[in-house]
């Protein structure tokens, strides 16, 4: 999974979102150690201070917890990470329907189109 950063939005919530996606997708199991601040900063090409703030934010929500001297781990509140994932799925789907509407397909037609879609 690549880190995709939109420069028009504050970066901190974007890092939170993308970490939640990884947790929700099962890339990290509960109590498993995740990447370090620096590793995330280098991979996403963002400021380490921003990454630190994002991790603290997720710690506040129970998605992550930190152990002094050994790093960051996945916490118990995976439900929050799933909610974030659901929100993004809903938003992407709504965007898709909107894009199709502009192309002249109403939602019934889009649903039919998706059902017939072959990958």
């Amino acid at each position: 999974m690549d880190w995709i950063i939109d420069k028009n939005r504050p970066i901190c919530p974007q890092i939170c979102e993308q970490l939640c996606l990884r947790v929700a997708a099962g890339q990290f199991a509960p109590h498993e150690k995740i990447l370090s601040v620096r590793e995330i900063a280098v991979a996403a090409g963002v400021n380490p201070n921003t990454v630190q703030r994002s991790l603290e934010e997720l710690e506040g929500r129970g998605v992550l917890y930190s152990v002094r001297g050994s790093g960051w781990f996945v916490g118990e509140n995976i439900a929050h990470a799933r909610e974030v994932l659901d929100d993004i799925l809903a938003k992407k789907t709504a965007d898709y329907f909107e894009a199709m509407r502009i192309l002249g397909m109403d939602s019934a037609a889009v649903k039919e189109y998706v059902k017939e879609w072959k990958e």
Binding site: I5, A41, G45
Partner: peptide, 29 residues
């Protein structure tokens, strides 16, 4: 950019002068 991030120490401050903002803005505070 990754060299700056990798060697960045949380007690130090880095001033970067540039006009190529798009390339560097995501690492700025």
């Amino acid at each position: 950019i990754s060299t700056i991030i990798n060697n960045y120490n949380p007690e130090a401050t880095v001033i970067i002068s540039t006009h190529l903002i798009a390339d560097i803005e995501q690492i700025l505070d």
